[in-house]
Write a protein that binds this DNA or RNA. Structure first.
Lengths: 273, 273
DNA sequence: GATCAGGTTCCAGATATCGGAACCATTGGT
DNA sequence: ACCAATGGTTCCGATATCTGGAACCTGATC
């Protein structure tokens, strides 16, 4: 069980900071003490590198070492960080509640998306309780041209911007329904922009039908999409359209949450001294 | 009052990695969207530096930006990190020992909880040996409005925060005791805040009575709840109140551990062996 | 006291950061 | 339409950090 790094562990990023974060994630998953050597095997990083990183984390109080000097565990500062992170996230909490309610109403899995780096990013997701479902977890990404919310994001862009983005990316085909012809896509986007909602009719995953809207933002483009996703076994375009009102209602609620969270007044007094 | 960094913000470290961590801590405390400029003022770091850092966090999926491009918020990866951190920090430590001792003292199942995404997350749990008991495992979640520790978390929030959370969250009714009326809940929360402890009197599960306190945190709000849960067969409010001193003592010990008071840790660990 | 499995230190190159200054892009005011 | 002003973004040379192979400790074990 030596260091077969080549394929066993691509767990790192490409800048020191990102590598550090990746390391933190590995550490976060550890329930018990861990050692330098263990980390070397798990991450594939060279020993001195890892040693330095752990040392930094230790002197920051993020980690602590046992008396024997070779076992690390999470430090109090790290815990505090995690607690603070979760404690101050009412925006997410409120959005999540809306999402849950929507799932309850329509009986299918739903998710909140954003445009990030030219791709659609899943921010949050609530699964339906129905047994048959697709598994797509928060944090994963999907191309814009073959997702319902992606097309909405595209539709609200300035034409030049959109063209620039689409030029960069090849319109990869995932299913026989994927729109790979630029003109067909442009026409679809135009229609989507007019309607205010968009479908993804098995354009990304076979058997998956989605309908999406944006959380309306009167002051400009929106970066919050809301989508229903379900297997075609249970869903058709027509049935999806019946869910549209509920979807739009939820989108409006999320927009309200976003609007409120924009008030810039710092209430950061918590961490004063 | 521009960047008077010299004394206003010593919030940074002396190596890039440590500065990044410090930045994360500032971000963790933000409950709403924040901007580059805001961070500049708060941390005293130069704008380009901060810009680069935020950019890295964004491309890592730790943060994300709104459509206007100037408002950041916490990303799903960051949330996952925080949850993973807390969820996997239970078994080995002295906290577990404290929990076990408490269960021993009061004879009922106890658990440690945290707020996450507007819900109460069970971090750790020790079961009583009594044959009749409820089954609730670590990692599961419960709504805030009908759990003892949830009400405590709500009580320590800033009013705006609480409102944001409760507004969108339908106060689902689980039993005839669940507080579904916003005003009744608000009154209860006010009382809970005053008392420093909270009941859940069959508000979530029929037949289940809980009493909870928070692990006190002098520097701000706490994200660690400690609760006793027992079937009403064996428990009443009055009997629960008799356990309150033991509960508070345990909470104080856990706070001490969180604070990294090694002497107490040693003590707690001693009772463990 | 030889061996070994870690942990630690060295150090020269490769790389990322740093931050002042200049550059854009949107406001908002007149 | 024009001109600030505010805030985000990009440049880039100087600098500090990171990198990781190799050598060096250290305490266990036989």
């Amino acid at each position: 069980m030596t260091t077969n790094r080549s394929e066993m562990s691509r767990l790192e990023g490409d800048t020191p900071a990102q590598r550090l974060l990746a390391l933190l994630e590995v550490i976060a998953g550890k329930d018990q003490f861990f050692t330098l050597q263990g980390m070397v095997e798990e991450t594939g990083l060279p020993k001195p590198t890892l040693h330095r990183m752990l040392q930094q984390l230790e002197t920051s109080g993020m980690l602590q070492r046992e008396a024997d000097g070779r076992h690390y565990s999470k430090g109090s500062r790290l815990r505090r960080l995690a607690e603070s992170l979760l404690l101050n996230d009412t925006v997410h909490g409120a959005r999540h509640a809306v999402l849950r309610k929507l799932v309850d109403d329509v009986g299918e899995s739903c998710n909140i998306t954003a445009l990030s780096g030219g791709e659609v990013l899943y921010l949050d997701r609530v699964e339906t309780s129905a047994p048959l479902r697709f598994y797509l977890h928060p944090g994963s990404r999907v191309p814009v041209h073959c997702s319902a919310s992606g097309k909405l994001f595209l539709a609200q862009m300035a034409p030049a911007q959109r063209r620039r983005l689409l030029n960069e990316m090849s319109l990869e085909s995932f299913t026989h329904n994927t729109l790979v012809d630029p003109e067909a896509l442009e026409a679809e986007i135009e229609a989507v922009g007019r309607q205010g909602y968009a479908f993804d009719d098995e354009e990304f995953l076979p058997g998956l039908l989605c309908i999406a809207v944006l959380a309306p933002n009167p002051d400009g483009p929106s970066n919050t999409g809301l989508a229903i996703q379900s297997p075609i076994m249970r869903m058709t375009r027509d049935k999806a359209l019946e869910c549209l009102p509920a979807l739009q209602r939820a989108a409006e609620q999320i927009a309200a949450i976003n609007r409120e969270a924009l008030s810039d007044v710092a209430q950061a007094a918590a961490g004063e001294r």
